[in-house]
Design a protein around this nucleic acid. Structure first.
Lengths: 93, 93
DNA sequence: CGACATTACGTATCTCGTAACTATG
DNA sequence: CATAGTTACGAGATACGTAATGTCG
């Protein structure tokens, strides 16, 4: 599992379509589709239901989405905190 | 930044040596050293002070360590939650 | 057949490990 | 000169994009 896969998952969950999420991420559909499949494979469970209209979150996907957002937010916070501390600002982690 | 880099950082922070952390991660020194350098490059600030005895955390590194542990714990929680939900257990995220 | 996702496949990029190098007490 | 980290470099693994292939209403 990589941060890239997690970002891809969040984009697909929010857009409901692989194609639309791909445009948002400046990526083509196939790699993005592979990110999701690889994530599902690694977790051992499907996260989306495939419909002719696109991708709909399954309960496992909803659960993962909550954590995924927290992970990405934490990464962001880490970056900002380190830059702040390195610049001499007090640590607000 | 990747989860691998973050795991590498935590191992080096905890061991205080690249070489020892590399053994713990079943990796050789050079890739591990590169993970740290690449992290520092991406964050725009050094995280460790290099001493003849090994690596000592700088304040920016201490700040990053807190977040890094939180990120890895959150990833772990995500995996367990998804597996639980997929197995029909209620979501305790 | 239209609107999607997925698979095939070749190329570019990344990442590893071995070996060589650098630095410091 | 011993002990640490870093840089060079070639080989194997990854990940991209284009094109082809499902799949389902």
């Amino acid at each position: 599992m990589s941060l890239t896969h997690i970002q891809s998952f969040v984009a697909v969950a929010e857009e409901g379509h692989v194609g639309r999420a791909a445009r948002r991420l400046h990526l083509s559909q196939p790699p993005l589709s592979r990110h999701i499949l690889s994530l599902e494979d690694e977790l051992g469970a499907p996260l989306f239901e495939r419909t002719p209209r696109g991708m709909r979150l399954l309960p496992a996907g909803e659960a993962f989405l909550t954590h995924a957002r927290r992970i990405l937010a934490e990464v962001d916070a880490a970056v900002h905190t380190v830059r702040g501390v390195a610049a001499g600002r007090p640590d607000d982690s």
